[in-house]
């Protein structure tokens, strides 16, 4: 579900430039799976699919799989179009040290939205 984050992101230098000083590791959690995403200088180096025994990560984004699927639609419905919208509906939880996420909020929003079939935003 999120394995392609690395492939998509590496094609996009402008997105990486938005987070050129960011080195972090975070987890995207669905009901069924977990994905460990490793970012170096704004570039997604790799995505590992769980289960994990002792994953080291800084923060976690946790939502049921059906909510992630709604987020990843070509044109998401209201309330599913943004991670803060999902937070507002209490279907997504932010956990852990949120500093990397909040200090690069737009970057993470665009990174996740990059998995939508056809993106409704600028790309370089």
């Amino acid at each position: 579900m999120f394995e392609k984050l690395a492939e998509k992101n590496n094609k996009r230098q402008s997105l990486a430039l938005m987070a050129q000083y960011l080195n972090t590791c975070f987890i995207i959690s669905t009901t069924e799976n977990e994905y460990l995403v490793n970012i170096e200088k704004g570039v997604v180096k790799n995505v590992e699919k769980g289960p994990f025994v002792m994953p080291s990560y800084v923060f976690k984004l946790k939502a049921p799989e059906n909510e992630w699927l709604k987020f990843l639609q070509h044109t998401p419905q209201p309330g599913s179009h943004d991670i803060i919208a999902m937070l507002r509906r209490k279907v997504l939880k932010f956990e852990g040290d949120l500093h990397p996420l909040m200090s690069h909020l737009l970057y993470f929003k665009l990174l996740l939205a990059s998995l939508r079939p056809v993106e409704s935003r600028n790309e370089n």
Partner: peptide, 21 residues
């Protein structure tokens, strides 16, 4: 945290995916 970056990030999500980029 850079205020401009985070405030922009918050505002961005409040807009419709269908609005002109």
């Amino acid at each position: 945290v850079h205020g401009g970056e985070v405030c922009g990030g918050i505002a961005y999500g409040l807009m419709a995916p269908t609005s002109p980029e």
